[in-house]
């Protein structure tokens, strides 16, 4: 159950950012945060990593999107990454 915080960078020559934004807003897995003419913060909340990738791809392909940066990835999992990665951990 990944949750990622992404930053979208817009193509500065693109004129219809508002349209792209409304498409983002319409997507239920995406929450749109702070935006300006160049960048926009979104949070993607999906049930699986595969879905997460799909959404990522979808966003990338939206008109006017020049790039995406990952600001944060969180897993809604009880085990913290630290302890689950230890050889000493017991399940």
């Amino acid at each position: 159950m990944p949750i990622s915080g992404l930053v979208i960078t817009f193509d500065q020559t693109f004129d219809h950012i508002d349209e792209t934004l409304s498409r983002l807003r319409a997507e239920p897995a995406i929450e749109v945060g702070a935006c300006d003419r160049q960048q926009c913060a979104i949070v993607v909340d999906t049930p699986s990593q595969a879905d997460d990738k799909k959404i990522y791809q979808w966003v990338q392909d939206l008109p006017g999107v020049a790039g995406i940066q990952v600001a944060f990835v969180g897993f809604d999992d009880d085990a913290t990454p630290d302890s689950s990665s230890t050889t000493d951990s017991v399940d």
Partner: peptide, 28 residues
């Protein structure tokens, strides 16, 4: 508790992303 934790993660994700957009820590 689960949804609470999700809520927290989401806010943290939003915080991280927004701070990069606004750059100055002045985000809501």
């Amino acid at each position: 508790m689960d949804s609470k934790r999700r809520g927290f993660l989401k806010s943290a994700a939003m915080a991280a992303a927004s701070s990069m957009v606004l750059g100055d820590g002045e985000f809501s």
